[in-house]
């Protein structure tokens, strides 16, 4: 990296807190340069990994917009007003325009264009020596300067269901109320210790790993102290379990069976 040429964040937009799950399309505009091939795709990959944004890559945008996308983009010549119309047509709230041009060095620019106001809300540019490709860490750094910090905070949801009301729920060491309790939206990825307790009942404890944009369901069945044999409590704990709905939206249902003799329990170990 020779020099960071321009770093401009327009305060008006930067101060707002945009939806961290908004739809963003990433487009690539080349001004007579064949350098840094696949740059837009790398931006898409980085955004998909580190944010909860709904990211449309250039190819997905082309599918939605039509084959004339590249021609339109060339005609826009980087003008925010024109590029915003592309974003509007594909239903995006923002366009990230990755520009590659050459002025001796390779100039890489990234503009964040707000589709609603048709204005550039942030812009970053870097000058790269010939045959230099930015590392993944550099791409991450560009994006962290381009996008609001809130975009890099990700969350998951934990739903806790217990068989009795009035049990105290502690998640990650913090009291969260008593059952029945609303779904908890918490930073992810992260591991949380969950404790559900009520006087006179065996305390339920588990540890869950919450994936970003995932949804965990913890079904806890608290047994009265001294009421059940140890192996029955073991069965209850195994069956209670923790459920995860992945980011892909898989529907998962895991019922606690009333008659255990009709079913086989699946457990596993990774070696």
């Amino acid at each position: 990296m020779k020099a960071l040429l321009v770093l401009l964040c327009l305060a008006g937009v930067a101060s707002a807190d945009p939806d961290p799950k908004r739809k963003v399309t990433v487009l690539e505009f080349r001004s007579g340069s064949s350098a840094l091939q696949g740059m837009a795709q790398r931006v898409v990959t980085a955004l998909s990994k580190q944010t909860s944004l709904q990211v449309l890559g250039p190819d997905q945008t082309r599918v939605l917009y039509g084959d004339q996308l590249d021609g339109t983009l060339v005609k826009c010549a980087g003008e925010a007003d024109c590029v915003a119309k592309i974003g509007q047509k594909v239903g995006a709230q923002e366009v990230i325009l990755v520009g590659v041009s050459e002025l001796g060095d390779v100039i890489l620019t990234m503009q964040r264009i707000d589709v609603g106001s048709k204005q550039v809300s942030a812009r970053i540019a870097d000058s790269l020596a010939e045959n230099t490709t930015p590392t993944d860490a550099q791409v991450d750094a560009y994006l962290q300067k381009l996008l609001p910090p809130g975009d890099f905070k990700r969350f998951g949801v934990i739903e806790i269901v217990a068989n009795l009301s009035g049990a105290a729920v502690t998640v990650g060491g913090e009291p969260r109320g008593v059952t029945p309790i609303q779904k908890l939206t918490l930073p992810a990825p992260a591991t949380y210790d969950i404790r559900i307790e009520k006087q006179g009942f065996v305390t339920y404890r588990t540890k869950v790993e919450l994936p970003p944009d995932g949804q965990l369901k913890v079904e806890a069945e608290l047994s009265r102290r001294g009421e059940t044999a140890w192996y029955q409590r073991w069965y209850v704990l195994a069956a209670a379990g923790v459920l995860v709905a992945g980011a892909a939206g898989t529907t998962i249902y895991f019922a606690t069976r009333s008659d255990p003799s009709d079913f086989a329990t699946i457990t596993g170990v990774v070696q």
Binding site: T206, E209, L243, I266
Partner: peptide, 20 residues
């Protein structure tokens, strides 16, 4: 097909039940 997704607790997991 029913898919049960669970977090790995250490290297162990539980994946529900199936009818006999």
């Amino acid at each position: 097909e029913n898919v049960t997704t669970t977090p790995l607790d250490g290297m162990q997991f539980s994946a529900g039940e199936v009818p006999l």
